[in-house]
């Protein structure tokens, strides 16, 4: 009995520590966003929603928000099929030069973002596609692609190979087996990956900075630029708006498919 308790105590201590680590900046930002003062501070000076007023009144921020949505959608739409197929290939098929391929697919994480951004600035400039928004989505997809691959791989590893074989043995055509057996089995990974890709694209500022201009600036770039100049509570207010939108999205997801899907395949 005591070992069971010691296990619970140790595990929960670490979990609570984690929760504090994860929540602390969020709480601070929430608090700082309602200050009446001109600087980000916690505890806030007084209470006012003036910074929210400023955020919602800003046409620049609103346009940037819409652009960021578009960038995130482009990123996710490209990443989901590409990442899912690659993950299934790695998990299901014998591929030549597998180790090298793994290292190749890890390039998005081993190339420093500034290098990646500079390279894409030159490449996209040469191709004449700078100044448009979709290349920014493509760029966000490329630099975060390993997340998509691994999220699906994590599910694919938990998947029972026998099921697919059984389907094939029962005469199911390859596509049919893929759609009816494989895809549902890795759905949790696809959803986790898609969400990650969307959110990461929505927050990407370093590569996007090099690929956008005043007419295509995205929200994280706009936030980054203002932080470089002067740090005012409207940045906290923007972040809180993010969190509210995120909470809503997560609540809807829970309602529709259940959050359990992140952990368990059907």
């Amino acid at each position: 009995m005591s070992t069971v308790r010691s296990k619970a105590v140790v595990l929960w201590t670490v979990v609570v520590l984690n929760l504090i680590l994860l929540a602390a900046p969020t709480v601070i930002i929430l608090g700082a966003s309602v200050t009446t003062g001109n600087i980000i501070a916690f505890p806030p000076e007084g209470f006012s929603l003036k910074w929210y007023g400023k955020v919602f009144a800003s046409v620049v921020l609103r346009e940037a928000f819409v652009r960021s949505l578009w960038v995130s959608i482009v990123c996710t739409v490209i990443a989901v099929p590409a990442g899912t197929l690659a993950a299934l290939a790695l998990a299901r098929y014998r591929v030549r030069f597998a180790k090298l391929l793994q290292l190749y697919l890890l390039l998005p994480f081993t190339v420093p973002l500034i290098g990646a951004g500079m390279g894409m600035l030159m490449l996209f400039g040469e191709l004449g596609i700078l100044g448009e928004l979709w290349p920014v989505g493509l760029a966000c997809c490329v630099i975060n692609l390993p997340f998509m691959i691994w999220a699906v791989l994590a599910s694919a590893n938990a998947l029972d190979t026998d099921l697919e074989n059984a389907a094939a043995n029962c005469g199911a055509a390859p596509l049919q087996a893929f759609v009816t057996v494989t895809l549902p089995a890795v759905a949790p990974g696809i959803i986790t990956g898609a969400l990650l890709m969307f959110v990461l694209a929505f927050n990407e500022f370093l590569v996007s900075l090099l690929l956008t201009d005043a007419n295509t600036v995205t929200l994280p770039v706009s936030i980054y630029n203002s932080i470089r100049n002067v740090i005012t509570p409207d940045l906290a207010a923007v972040s809180v708006v993010y969190i509210l939108v995120a909470t809503l999205a997560i609540a809807l997801l829970d309602r529709w498919v259940g959050l359990e899907i992140f952990l368990k395949s059907k």
């Binding site: 979990v15 929760l19 994860l22 929540a23 602390a24 900046p25 969020t26 601070i28 930002i29 700082a32 980000i40 501070a41 916690f42 969400l195 990650l196 959110v199 990461l200 929505f202 927050n203 500022f205 994280p220 936030i223 980054y224 932080i227 740090i231 940045l235 906290a236 972040s239 993010y242 969190i243 939108v245 995120a246 909470t247 997560i250 829970d254 959050l259 359990e260 992140f262 952990l263």
Partner: peptide, 27 residues
């Protein structure tokens, strides 16, 4: 419990790395 742990995990993603770091400066 599972839901709370999952949501706590996802929410920080929505505040970018930079803003989160500034939160730590304040703390």
């Amino acid at each position: 419990t599972r839901k709370i742990l999952l949501v706590s995990l996802f929410l920080p993603f929505f505040i970018g790395q930079v803003v989160r770091a500034y939160g730590w400066l304040i703390i």
